[in-house]
């Protein structure tokens, strides 16, 4: 394998990983707090379209990201309202978020569908580091959203496992009643983490439309929200493990494209389907309870907290 090919595989795998990792880390926090949001795909599409619209009409990436964050926060608040305050079924609410986001993004994005924004997050080479052979150009000649992801992964690990707030977060998904007795506001904390998760998911969408494919079309995240949900489950709710999973998926999808040029007789659809096949296989092998293995899911996941039922 030539060095340039290797560099292109690693660097594309890293960008691909960024498209799903923001959402996966956000969802890990949300599920650790006890709320499962299956509407990631819809929120991601809303993030992707709102960011792209601002990029087209205002030509300003900072403003685009601010709008994306606001959209994510708004959708997160709606989802928390349904699942925390109204105690609605989380699966059904997730489906509602999915259809709402898919439909609304398609409707709003009609005007920018196929329009070239001529604006995207361009790679910025980091001095010195980017000169390291192979790893330099593939890891340190990336756009700012990827660099931000490099920071978020270790920070989220430290937050979850090394801080007091992280300990409270983990308790929130395991035994909210105990936290409530200790004087913490379970509802407010769940609102905060669900909204945080939704913001991260919207950012994931913006990574797709502004740093990965650089266009908008209907349903263009093509299942990345679901791959993020799958990553959460098979990483056993651990951001670092999710990162390795995301890189693996990135590598699979890019290698598919490269292998395709070597075997032109194989239909292109086979390679396009690869990431989904990989998700199914990985999900079965990592989360199937063979010989009575126990799930690592937070104990209170999907159970609405109701003070009357304490």
């Amino acid at each position: 394998m030539s060095t340039t090919l290797l560099i292109s595989i690693i660097s594309t795998a890293v960008v691909y990983a960024a498209t799903v990792l923001y959402a996966a880390v956000g969802e890990i926090f949300s599920q650790r707090a006890g709320i499962m949001n299956l509407g990631l795909e819809g929120i991601m599409l809303m993030g992707a379209v709102s960011g792209y619209m601002v990029a087209v009409y205002r030509q300003n990436l900072v403003l685009a990201m601010l709008v994306v964050i606001l959209v994510g926060a708004a959708l997160g608040l709606v989802f928390s309202f349904l699942t925390v305050t109204m105690q609605a079924d989380q699966t059904v609410s997730g489906m509602a978020m999915l259809t709402f986001g898919t439909g609304l993004s398609g409707f709003l994005g009609k005007g920018v569908s196929g329009v070239n924004a001529n604006l995207a997050f361009e790679p910025i080479a980091i001095p010195v580091l980017s000169r390291v052979p192979v790893l330099g150009p593939s890891l340190f000649d990336q756009n700012i959203l990827v660099y931000l992801m490099y920071l978020i992964i270790p920070l989220s690990m430290i937050y979850l496992y090394k801080t007091r707030a992280g300990m409270i977060l983990r308790a929130l998904g395991e035994n909210p009643a105990a936290l409530d007795s200790a004087g913490y506001n379970v509802f407010a904390l769940r609102y905060a983490y669900v909204t945080f998760g939704s913001i991260m998911t919207a950012v994931s969408g913006a990574v797709v439309s502004l740093a990965y494919t650089n266009f908008w079309s209907d349903g263009m995240t093509s299942g990345k929200g679901w791959i993020a949900v799958a990553l959460v489950v098979f990483s056993a709710w651990n951001p670092l493990t999710a990162t390795f999973g995301a890189l693996l998926f990135g590598a699979i999808s890019i290698i598919g494209i490269d292998v395709q040029t070597v075997f032109p007789q194989v239909p292109s659809q086979v390679f396009s389907a690869l990431p989904y096949v990989a998700t199914i296989i990985a999900l079965i092998f990592t989360t199937g309870n063979f010989r009575g293995r126990r799930s690592a899911a937070p104990a209170a996941l999907t159970i609405p907290y109701d003070r009357e039922k304490r």
Binding site: G42, V78, L82, M95, A96, M97, L98, T99, F100, G101, T102, G103, L104, G106, F107
Partner: peptide
């Protein structure tokens, strides 16, 4: 149509 469907569901 999809927008109205999604909103109805929500």
């Amino acid at each position: 149509a999809t927008m109205i469907q999604g909103t109805i569901m929500l």
